[in-house]
């Protein structure tokens, strides 16, 4: 299980997280929603150890991430797949090489690597794209390769950073389906998004991050029925009163 306990994180004078506490149950998709700049992506990077909290602790499977030495952190990252907002594919490598890279690190045998490359590309519907370079792919295809790269590792957890941002509605729906399919394969997901349609489609639980802390956590139905004005404003997409015309 992933857990954040009273986590604080600042960048210079900007205090991004101010006491975030959140549990991510195994086998579910937990969606973190919140306005741009609210610290959603920072939360994901804390989970995988790309950033360290200033205070509080992040634990994955009982291990406190910021206390892990390099070797243990590498081992932990072997259990976590990360899908980046802009895919972060290695542009000097083909699609297949992007997927092979993580597998080679885990000393997966050569024929097994090739099998998993084919399998993961089939999962995201990109069979036959092995030899293409990221520059030859559309934004949606790149994101799908990003998911294939994560899925191929057969991780226990996948962290998705804004998986549907910038995609057309049909491709977004495809992405949502993929995240549900991955959850059904037994992978625990943490999805960061401000796309409410996607949050309702993939989330077993939704947590709203606001003012550096978790404002509310609940099932999609609970969130839709909330009386909290901040949560309501966000899920209904209403403008701030001060900016409303």
């Amino acid at each position: 299980m992933i857990a954040l306990d009273d986590v604080y994180k600042s960048f210079g004078a900007k205090r991004v997280l101010r006491g975030v506490t959140l549990q991510v149950p195994d086998g579910e998709n937990t969606v973190i929603i919140g306005r741009s700049g609210s610290g959603k992506s920072v939360t994901l990077k804390l989970i995988v150890g790309l950033l360290e909290p200033d205070a509080g602790q992040v634990t994955v499977d009982g291990a406190v991430v910021q206390h892990l030495d390099r070797e243990a952190l590498t081992e932990l990252r072997g259990r976590i797949g990360f899908v980046f907002q802009f895919a972060a594919l290695f542009d000097s490598m083909t699609v297949a090489d992007n997927i092979r890279l993580g597998l080679a690190r885990r000393a997966v045998p050569g024929d097994e690597i090739e099998r998993r490359v084919g399998e993961s590309l089939a999962v995201v519907g990109l069979e036959g794209s092995e030899a293409k370079y990221p520059a030859e792919l559309s934004g949606g295809m790149r994101k799908r390769v990003g998911i294939a790269r994560a899925v191929a590792l057969r991780p226990r957890y996948i962290l998705y950073d804004e998986p549907t941002t910038g995609l057309d509605p049909v491709t977004s729906a495809d992405m949502n389906e993929l995240m549900v399919k991955t959850r059904d394969l037994g992978v625990t997901g943490v999805v960061v998004t401000h796309d409410m349609r996607s949050a309702y489609a993939v989330g077993d639980r939704i947590a709203m991050l606001h003012d550096g802390a978790i404002r509310q956590v609940g099932t999609p139905a609970e969130l839709q029925a909330t009386d909290d004005p901040v949560v309501r404003q966000f899920i209904e997409g209403r403008p701030d009163e001060r900016t409303a015309v």
């Binding site: 990077k45 995988v48 790309l50 390099r70 590498t74 081992e75 990252r77 072997g78 976590i80 797949g81 990360f82 980046f84 907002q85 802009f86 972060a88 594919l89 290695f90 542009d91 890279l101 993580g102 690190r105 885990r106 790269r149 590792l153």
Partner: peptide, 17 residues
């Protein structure tokens, strides 16, 4: 370019130093 496009972060999440 790799740093600002998060490719360096991606490398680390794939367990590379």
């Amino acid at each position: 370019t790799m740093k600002v496009t998060e490719q360096v972060d991606a490398l680390e999440t794939l367990a590379y130093d």
